[in-house]
Lab assay of single mutants.
Amino acid sequence: SGVNQQQLQQLMDMGFTREHAMEALLNTSTMEQATEYLLTHP
């Protein structure tokens, strides 16, 4: 699906929903950016 499943699982383990985590990974290129994205786009 174009996203790193390991990163997706890590974000879900942090408490984010699958949909939200996927959106973040699709819009960013690193785990750090994805986390930042999730925190700034709740």
Results as ranks from 00 to 15, higher is better:
Q9S: 09
E32Y: 04
R18K: 12
M31V: 07
F16H: 07
P42I: 15
L8Y: 03
G2Q: 12
S29Q: 11
L11P: 00
V3R: 06
E23D: 07
Q6N: 11
Q10E: 09
Y37L: 06
T28W: 04
Y37V: 12
M31H: 03
N4T: 08
T35W: 15
A24E: 00
M22A: 07
E32I: 05
L39D: 15
D13P: 00
G2D: 10
D13F: 06
Q33A: 12
A34D: 02
L39G: 11
V3T: 08
H20L: 15
T40R: 06
H41I: 10
M14W: 07
P42R: 13
H20F: 13
Q10V: 13
E23H: 11
E23G: 05
S29N: 11
N4L: 09
Q5R: 11
T35A: 11
M12D: 00
L38A: 05
E19R: 10
T35E: 14
Q7N: 14
N27K: 12
L8D: 00
D13R: 08
E36C: 15
E36H: 06
H20D: 09
M31Q: 03
A34F: 02
T30W: 02
T35K: 15
A24W: 01
G2P: 12
T35V: 15
T30Q: 02
M31E: 02
Q5C: 13
Q9W: 06
A34S: 01
L11F: 05
M22K: 07
S1Q: 14
T35N: 05
E23W: 14
M31R: 02
T30V: 02
T17W: 07
L8G: 00
T40G: 13
Q5N: 11
H41Q: 09
R18E: 08
M22S: 08
M14I: 05
L39Q: 15
T17H: 12
D13H: 08
T35Y: 15
M31G: 01
L8M: 06
M12W: 01
D13T: 06
Q7D: 13
Q33L: 06
M12I: 12
L8W: 04
G2S: 13
L26C: 15
E36W: 05
T28H: 05
T28C: 09
L25T: 02
L26N: 08
Q10T: 14
Q33P: 00
E36R: 06
S1W: 05
Q9N: 10
A21I: 09
Q10W: 08
M12N: 02
Q33K: 06
L38M: 04
A34I: 02
T17I: 11
N4R: 09
E32Q: 09
Q33D: 12
G15S: 03
M12T: 06
L8E: 01
Q10S: 08
T28K: 03
L11H: 01
L25F: 04
P42L: 15
H41F: 12
P42C: 14
Y37D: 12
E36D: 11
G2E: 12
L11K: 00
Q9Y: 07
Q7L: 11
G2Y: 10
E32T: 05
Q6W: 11
P42E: 14
N4V: 09
E19P: 10
F16W: 08
S29D: 14
R18N: 05
P42V: 15
M14P: 01
T30A: 02
H41R: 05
N27P: 01
Y37C: 15
A34Y: 02
M31F: 15
N4W: 08
N4K: 08
H20C: 14
T17D: 15
Y37H: 14
M31I: 13
E23P: 01
A24C: 03
G15K: 03
M12F: 03
Q6F: 10
P42N: 15
H41V: 07
H20S: 11
F16R: 02
M22I: 14
Q7C: 11
P42G: 15
L26W: 05
A21S: 12
T30L: 02
E23C: 11
T35S: 05
T30S: 13
Q33M: 06
L8A: 03
S29R: 09
P42D: 14
M22L: 13
N27S: 07
E19Y: 12
L38K: 01
Q5Y: 11
G2H: 14
D13W: 05
P42A: 15
M22F: 08
S1E: 13
Q9F: 07
A24R: 00
V3P: 08
L38F: 04
G15H: 04
P42S: 15
Q9T: 10
Q5G: 10
S1I: 13
L26D: 05
M31A: 03
M22D: 02
G2I: 13
T28P: 01
L39M: 14
A24F: 01
Q33G: 07
T40F: 08
L38G: 02
Q7P: 04
T30Y: 02
T40C: 15
T35Q: 14
E19H: 13
F16T: 03
A21F: 01
L11N: 00
A34N: 01
Q6M: 12
Q6V: 13
S29G: 07
F16K: 01
R18A: 09
A21K: 00
L38I: 05
L25N: 00
E32W: 04
L25R: 01
R18M: 11
R18W: 09
Q7T: 06
F16L: 01
L25M: 06
F16C: 03
Q33H: 05
Q10A: 10
T17P: 15
L38C: 11
Q7F: 14
E32G: 04
A21T: 04
N4M: 09
G15R: 01
L38S: 01
Q10H: 08
T28E: 02
M14S: 04
T17L: 14
D13E: 10
T30P: 00
M22N: 05
T40P: 03
L25Y: 04
M14H: 05
A24G: 04
N4Y: 09
F16V: 05
L38N: 02
D13G: 10
A34Q: 01
S1H: 13
H20R: 14
A21D: 00
